[in-house]
Structures are given as structure tokens and as C-alpha cells.
Design a binder for these strands. Sequence first.
DNA 1: ATAATAAAAAATCTCGAAATTTTAGTTGAC
DNA 2: GTCAACTAAAATTTCGAGATTTTTTATTAT
Lengths: 237, 237
Amino acid sequence: MNNSLLNLTEAKNARSMVEAAYGLIRADILNGVLAPGERLRVEVLKDRYEVGASTLREALTRLVGDALVTSEEQRGFRVAGISLQDFADLTRTRKLIEAEALAQSIIHGDEEWEANLVAAFHRLSKVEQARTPENIALYTDEFEVRNREFHRALIGACPSRWLMQFQGILFGQSERYRRISLNSRGMPRDVHSEHKAIVEAALARDADRARKLEEEHIEKTLEVLSHLVVTLAEVQD
Amino acid sequence: MNNSLLNLTEAKNARSMVEAAYGLIRADILNGVLAPGERLRVEVLKDRYEVGASTLREALTRLVGDALVTSEEQRGFRVAGISLQDFADLTRTRKLIEAEALAQSIIHGDEEWEANLVAAFHRLSKVEQARTPENIALYTDEFEVRNREFHRALIGACPSRWLMQFQGILFGQSERYRRISLNSRGMPRDVHSEHKAIVEAALARDADRARKLEEEHIEKTLEVLSHLVVTLAEVQD
DNA sequence: ATAATAAAAAATCTCGAAATTTTAGTTGAC
DNA sequence: GTCAACTAAAATTTCGAGATTTTTTATTAT
């Protein structure tokens, strides 16, 4: 895994110790190194991430804002829990937010937005091509970054600061779930075609169609994970 | 003003110094004691709120999560700015979120939800009755609390954690703008009738109608403030 | 005068020890 | 055997001095 590389990059780019710790812990939560529900003891983590107690605490408080960490007064911090129920809620809300943001983006988008979108789609396609069943784990991080950038490019011309902020939080959340379903072979799925159809609708300025396709695209993630959970439940007993 | 009373209550209920400072600063931002765009110097505020630097910093970081404070690395914290443009965005997004939450609440609501809603509406009505043009400033805080509780009761049965969280953030934001338009006499408005109509639609389990009324209700706030800004602009020159 | 550079001031950011609170374990009364 | 009170251990939370960075002021050269 090249997690350490990714983490190192984030740490280097950080302009303060709080930001560095924030980035490292965030990556560890998304990658499952810090498991859902796990306690985040200040005494332990301050040594692991090599920062003081107050600095660590501030980083954790930032993560509470992203809803990746929960805190209970006088009882410390925990990695936010996950559940199929929560993922269903997350998906529904993402559909609402992201589809609306996309529609607004299509309405307000200029030529630069179009160019960025085509570029982001191209970059994502390249990674998708390079990924084969054998090397899939190797490309997870890169795919994740490109995928985020593609979805971000789609709504890049949305003028609503609030929709953008909420989209960011929800998308970050969904990454945790996606990494579970990505590495395992669940239902067969042609993500590339889904993306392609959305781009075409967006460039054609068909907001309604793009909205619908985006909703279906997001919904599919839930279907895949639901299928996976059922499969796991069958195996367990 | 009985701000100090309200603040004291919040401070007493706090289970930690961070929470106490968070509550006090939040109230001061909502009340305009700390003005939009104002710098929040750690050295100054730690004395004002009687906490250590790290504790204050953590409280401010929590407020960043509420988008009431912004922070720039190595350049400190500021009270988040306000603008008519931002309020328009806020209102649009609130309509999207709150209307959806209301619709879901109506679908899932049980008898207890109904009872709570009727009770919250009654309490709000009492405060509205007590408010006259002379004593309006006196009841601002109480009205604000009851108003928030009423709107919270409306969506009390919404099962989506995410919609509830975003609603909370957006509603908190809008309080800043509402306090500007409340104390000044803008356009005449019958808020009570608007609330009444929403409650009736909710109890009749008419999700579509309730959604529409809620959207209109939220939209009205924007109209009032827009009108006020125009008036102020005329006066200024 | 203007711009570039350096020194001083001011502010943010960081750390870890000390205070406070919670949790776990033990004893003793009923 | 159960529950309550007490004690010890562990963990969270808090503080403020010191390190680092930014901003302001002063100085010098062009």
C-alpha cells in the first residue's frame, strides 16, 4: 500500500501541525486503519501522530465537523460508527444535494467548466483502464482521488456555497463505505458508462436528465453495498 | 437586554470549559456582539471568556464546523461574513433541506410527534401574542428559542440524521440574519398565520402541501431582508 | 520618493505538565 | 448475593509559557 506516501504528501502540504494531524487521522479513518466506533484516546494518538494533546484535540474537533469523529463531553472522542442504515440515509441525502448542485452547475457553467469536466473525466477514465482485477488495490487511492475530482468538476459551476460544503462532507463520508465495496467483488457494474452518460447530459445542458442520471449513479453504490452485506451475512453463519 | 442571562444559562449547562466558551461565543456572534468579519484574536478572547488559549482555540474550531467562524492557517480566526448574496444562498438551501425533512417527518410521524408539534406551536403563539411594537426587543431571545423549537418539532419525526444536522447548521446561520430583520420594521408579515397553515397541513398528513408552505415561509424571510437592504441603501445616500 | 531589506512587535500555534473527571476495583454493610 | 461507599488508576480536559510565523515599523540604498 502507498498510504504512507499519500499521508506524507498531506503532511508536507500542511501549514500547521493541526492540519497535518487532521489530514493523517482523516486518511486513517477513511482507510479503516482507525476502525468505525474505535475510541480515539488523546494520550495514545498524540504519540502516534507526534503532536501535543491540545493540537491533537483541535485536529479531532475538526474531524467532528466532518462527522468522521464523534465526541462526548468528558468521555473523549471516537471514530464515527457506520451501518447500512446510515449509508442508506447518506445516499438519500447525497442524491438530494448532489443532484441539485449538478443542476445549478449546468445552468451556470461556462466554457472553462466544460473544459475542466472533460479533462477530469479523461483522467478518471485512464485510471479505470489501468485497473485490472489483480492490481485493483494498487490503484484504489488514485482512483479515489480522480473520482472525487470528477464529481467535483461536475458541480464545479454550482454557485451555492452551502451545497458545495454539504456535498464535500457527504462525499467524504461515502468514501469510507465505497472503499469497503470497491475492493470486494460485489455486483458487476459499469461505472465508466455511468460517468460518461452524466458528462454527455451535462455538456448538452440537459439539467433534468443529468440530475436523474446522477441520482441513479449514487443510488447504485447503495445497491452494491446492500448486496454485499447480504452476501456477508450469508457467509457468517 | 437579557443576553447575559441567556449566556449564563448556556455556560452553566456546559459540561466543559470548551462547551461553555463555545456557547458564549456562539451567542455573541448570533447577537452581533462579535460582528461579521471581525477578527477573533486568541489573546484577546481568552481573557474575555476566561479560558486558556488551547481551550478557546478548540471552541473556535467547533464554531468553524458550524460555519459561524472561518479560519485561515497561521492567520487566525474570524467571525464569518454575511451578505445578501450569502443569505439568498442560505435561504435556497434551507428550502431544499427543510422542506424535504418536513415531508419525511410527516410520513414517519407518530402521535407523540403530533402532540409535540401542537405544544410547540402553542408555546410559540403565546410569545407572539405577548410581543407588541414597544416590548419587541425584550422578547427577541425567547421568540428565537420558541421559533427554533417549533421548526424543530415540525421535522421532529424525520429519520434522516443528515438532513437534521444540515438543518441545524442552516437554521443557526439564518438566526443571524433574522435578528437583523426582526427588530426593524420591514414589510408587514403575518408569521403566525404562516405557521398555523403549516401545522394544519402537517397534521392532515399532506406532505406536498406542507412542503410548499414551508418553502414559501422560508422564502418570505429573504424577501423581508431584501426589502430592508433596499430601504437602507436608499437612506444611506 | 520608492523599493528592498532588516529588525522589532504582535499574533498564531504548539507543547506537556497539572487539574479535573470518569472508570474500575475493593471493601464492607445489609 | 446485592448494593453502596470508598479508593486507586486511567483518561479527559485545561492552562499558560515558549516556539514559530506573520505583520508592522524602521532603516538603507537606489
